[in-house]
Design a protein around this nucleic acid. Structure first.
Lengths: 224, 224, 224, 224
DNA sequence: AATGAATGAGACTTCATTCAT
DNA sequence: CATGAATGAAGTCTCATTCAT
């Protein structure tokens, strides 16, 4: 349970919180870059626009980030890590404590925690999702950090509930995939549909329906 | 049930099958463009590379498509329509006949039909998903064609199963969202994980688990 | 004597005379580039200035030459070859016919032929001399083409005169080095000093002195 | 014989030896600049690389040298002077004492002295040769210092040997040009060819051949 | 219809130089 | 004196698009 955080992970974690060490201008650059990348996509974003929005000279960007791609990576890597912080950091690990008695308690806690995060970091999330398919190195990072680290921490918890007969007997990876799909779908729908002017999106209802859907979907099969 | 296909829809449908009217070179251009767009993303693709792959002169592309964006649209619009063909075209509407007795029969038929399509048109699908966020006009088309048209046809069917007490009493939009999320998650996982060299992806198991997950998740709540 | 021209050499030779195949604009670009490179040096030359002088758009340069460096190379390689044409091409080989009875006849013929060439191609020569130290690949080409090819052709001739006791018994390479040094010195002085306004450069005298200096310097040692 | 050193020359001479007054950092800057300039050429060298190699901040360079070009000049001018030191400075003037009985003694002494210097200052020499063509002000300095000063001192010596019938009756400038050409050719060949791995450069032989070549080339013509 | 040379706007990036600390 | 972050002009190069052939 007390899975140790590897040393290199510590380093990464610090990376993701080093915004303290950034100069004022660097922060403006990163903020502007996140905005522009999210709005137009990485390839369609120009460093000149980023510079303008950040109110710095274009050259300043390249003093801090060797290339445009470097800027993307220096944004994307910490973003990944922040998304996983609850799974990695001791102080965040409260949400993962295994003494939830019921799976739906655990699921609800996790989902609510991450949904909140995603909503506050929609742009980062969008950039990640958009660019992962086009940058093999980014994708590898994602696999190593997200898939492996998260799975390593989630597996024992899910396994426990499986053993307790609370959820269906499927591979943990499959269970996680199903959960993630549904939650992502919820977040996307909320973002796209919810933003539309005339739409009526009853968030409470949708969230409840989503969680219940997962719970029922994962209920042990031979329940009858 | 025999929802009429509106006139403008006819036009669109023809658009999506007008490959017959295309010259040999046009077909090569479209094929090359789909490849390149899917590989690198629209913004990072160059017309020159498309021309090279299509083995035509750069100028030829612009003889058929006013701009690069026009090329994207002339690819994306038919793509959307092809994806919806089963919902729109009479001859395809077999999969949607409402005389399925059970919801899972209907779901299974639909899912299998569309999964097959997606797999054969992965590039088109990828382009659509990638570019929708960046092209409001494309997005609007998507909403008008996909959301409205499909919902118009799916709604009565789902409503029937709801009325029959076979599935949970949630808004049809919510039910569709949940289904689509899960299916997309399945397709994505299959594509990403399945392609990895050392991975063991038991497709039959995963697909069955996915469908069962949906079925259970949508089972009427007060079932007991 | 009828040393065959190797196949790859044929190719190179054609390269150096393919100006026929060049479009009007390409010729202007090359001409402008030679001018600017010679005036400012390669590194200090800007493609924008070259474009202006050639009266083409900057982009046009890069349609024909992938990079600025490519432009340099596409200029330098044929330049080297043209300089060696008399040593390589059959039709030029008149100057090298070995039936000169005396070494000074041979030397004089060669020098005058090459001096004339150098004067008509001063810019090319200057570029070569300036850039050779900074481009290893160019230097290697130079060594393979100039040093090896020329030496292969000059060696038998010089050896003959050596055997005939007309010139000093030193390694051919040394003899060539001494001759080349002196001729280069003559050309450089002529160019630098001769161009100065108030200078009195008696070309006939200098050239004669130069050739006589070489002849005497290379006279057999134990002449007495 | 005791040609006075003009006052302004004193200043220059001190310039070239003022390294004593340089701070530690200045010395590092100059050393780094010489390295980089020689390696890449002035135009292709960046002040940032110089700063890095000198292990000083970029700003520091500009505290001591107003511009990059100023740095070049502050390097090049003393370099010229050092090269001429034997001709200018009293204490060095030993090599130039006119009481050599034979011209070849004088020549040998001078050549050996300068060759040694060149080899120990190859980078400086290379920079000078490379940049002279592109900086008119540098060139003018060179002409005023080198050509005029050196000629003023060399002329009487060479004239003496001419008068004594030891060497050919050509203008002193011509004689000097011939000597310099040959010596430069020797130094260049030694540097380029001698550095190559598999090359066999017999330095003693080459140097002796070079000097003998000059001697014979300059021998009085009507000697017979 | 097809070509591909030509264009020029604009992309990313470098760099000498300045200046507040 | 020294620093190094910041600048913005200028550099190389790409690219969608046009047009004469």
């Amino acid at each position: 349970m007390d899975a140790r955080v590897e040393p290199w992970m510590d380093e990464l974690l610090q990376l993701s919180f080093e915004s303290d060490r950034m100069t004022e201008k660097q922060k403006r650059i990163v903020k502007a870059a996140i905005e522009v990348f999210a709005e137009k996509g990485f390839a369609a974003s120009s460093t000149s626009e980023i510079a303008q929005r950040a109110k710095v000279a274009e050259g300043t960007i390249f003093r801090h980030y060797k290339t445009k791609k470097d800027l993307l990576f220096k944004i994307a890597t910490p973003a990944m890590i922040k998304m996983l912080a609850p799974f990695l950091l001791r102080e965040f690990r409260g949400v993962l404590k295994t003494d939830y008695e019921r799976f739906d308690q655990f699921l609800r806690a996790l989902i609510e925690n991450r949904i909140e995060f995603l909503e506050q970091n929609m742009s980062l999330f969008k950039i990640l999702v958009q660019e992962l398919p086009f940058h093999p190195d980014l994708r590898e990072q994602f696999q190593q950090i997200v898939l492996q680290q998260v799975m390593a921490r989630v597996d024992p918890i899910v396994s426990k509930f499986k053993a307790a007969g609370q959820i269906v007997d499927l591979p943990v990876a499959t269970i996680v995939r199903l959960c993630v799909s549904v939650v992502m779908g919820y977040v996307l729908a909320r973002t796209f549909i919810g933003q539309q002017s005339g739409s009526r999106w009853n968030d409470e209802l949708e969230r409840e329906a989503t969680i219940e859907f997962i719970m029922k979907g994962l209920a042990p099969s031979g329940r009858a």
